[in-house]
Amino acid sequence: MLTVDRLTIRNRAGRALVEDVSFSVGPGDRAGLIGESGSGKSLTALAVIGLLPPGLTATGEVRLGDTSMIKGQEKLRTRVRGKVVATVFQEPLTALDPLMPAGRQIAEPIRRFRSLRGTALRDAVHAALDEVRLTDTDRIARSYPHELSGGQRQRVAIAMALACRPQLLVADEPTTALDVTVQAEILDLLDRLVDTHGTALLFITHDLPVAARVARHTHVLREGRIVESAPIADLLARPAHPYTRTLVDSARRFDAALGRHLS
């Protein structure tokens, strides 16, 4: 499905921001990419969809099915986006156009990939909103992003990403900007949707407990390199790399603090 092979991303000065990163995600798989900010996880996500910001160059290879996302024709990549791969971003306020009603934003990819128009398009938009558990779909579809809550906005973004049934969903810190309670709801929602549609998931986060909840095989990224790769359960139980150990330990300390107040 997705293969990333010795991906290296350099800036204009030639400094490597991501170095020699390799991993793969099979159909229906759930991979985790965990690391602190600046570790290169978001750049890796952008390289996967073939939309690195100008000034950054990627070497190595990223393949989505048969299509290279860093070499070859842009036209071929355009064909893959939306249909094969879709994304959910960290900040739902900037991920949605502030001047476009939510419904129209969801309609964009549907119109393009499923060639629906008129009432059929409207129904598809409502179905997509329904799927992310938004009630009162009429009102939501007409609302501008600032009229929606953070959780609702992220649901709309997820609806937009999943509307065309991509085979791979790249979720870049989709819950980081949300309240803890809303976080849990969104994670459950992603979990369920990815399961029902058999969508593969590349889940990017800095938050180990969040990764533990949705990801299976997880790669720990630090300063642009993968320092450890293992199923999440093994990572938690037997962290091999010192950095992973620090991550696990600090997560456990939070847990311990909660436990102390319980007793």
Partner: peptide, 27 residues
Amino acid sequence: LGRDYITAARVAGVSWPRIVLSHVLPN
């Protein structure tokens, strides 16, 4: 162009002219 919703639109396969008309110009 640096905003996420442009990236989102591009990931959604929206063409450049359409992105300019419906996202860039209004904003």
